[in-house]
Nucleic acid binder design. Structure first.
Lengths: 152, 152
DNA sequence: AACCGCAATGAAAACCGGTTCCATCGTCAT
DNA sequence: ATGACGATGGAACCGGTTTTCATTGCGGTT
């Protein structure tokens, strides 16, 4: 049931891990994906990212895109959110600490916001109810200035 | 997503609405589903709800369960959340006003909590970023007392 | 009670995002 | 250059949800 993007469960693996002898290989595809992620300012679906890679002339399979995004998400290199349709969206992570997003439901652009107060609140109410091992998800959606304007 | 309320809230919008002539029909299936929802205290998937209906000897199709849950969710008669696997879970709504849930990730049982403070916070930070038409999703997961105990 | 129209139903098929298989490819240490 | 093994990717698969469409049955009418 649950075991996907958990709350940063395991301690990290460095960007370029090196597990005794065998190390992560630098492939053309991995580099291209990283490059595209660096360019995309908005949360995008794996399929959109794959399409963008193809648009740029990269030869890369959808499977590979999914695989890399999964790993990057575990690393904390990319943030993930679920849109209203349940689809997972990805974007390069800007800040390391825990944060939330205000995302444009039209274009996907988002800004990161601190959420310490909310976290404390969540932990508090959950604890009051007797729950333990608490985790939470919080996403804020709206229309960014640009999209709001062009929608008048 | 979009409201599909007929623009005639004229008379009775009761459990058994009858808007002008022929509209919502009182079917065996609809009743059974409502009954099961009334009994289930935890967030359950459409498939689980369907299984429970069958267990009770009801003849009802999975499609119908999905359709009803969809409508009830729009009505606000049932609350919905997404579990970690992206599956939608349903539960009868207890309080009318806006609220959030502290849900057990093991058994699905949940308690409703007020969230005015969080809402204000969400609206504030979003507004500061220039976003409008703000909406948000917030779910808290943990282990309920019972599940925490039996997990020693 | 018999009749009818249309909403409701539901089995099967379509859909869809995402994952797994596995044969092949390409990197990197030697 | 060579070989081993990780990386790749097209196809098959998976599971939840929606759509299709022929059939059913609720309810008002005759």
């Amino acid at each position: 049931m649950d075991m996907m993007n958990d709350g940063h469960g395991a301690h990290s693996t460095a960007p370029q891990p090196e597990v005794r002898g065998t190390r992560v290989r630098g492939t053309r595809q991995a580099g291209a994906l990283t490059a595209v992620l660096a360019d995309l300012p908005a949360f995008s679906s794996a399929q959109d990212i794959h399409a963008e890679l193809r648009r740029r002339g990269e030869r890369i399979g959808l499977t590979t895109v999914y695989r890399h995004l999964q790993v990057l998400a575990e690393d904390g290199s990319v943030d993930t959110i679920r849109d209203a349709g349940g689809e997972t969206l990805y974007r390069r992570c800007e800040t390391v600490s825990h944060h939330h997003h205000v995302t444009c439901r039209s274009c996907g652009r988002s800004v990161e916001v601190e959420g310490r107060a909310v976290e404390r609140w969540a932990d508090k109410v959950a604890a009051e109810a007797g729950y333990v091992d608490i985790d939470h998800t919080l996403e804020i959606f709206g229309l960014c200035p640009d999209c709001a304007r062009s929608r008048t």
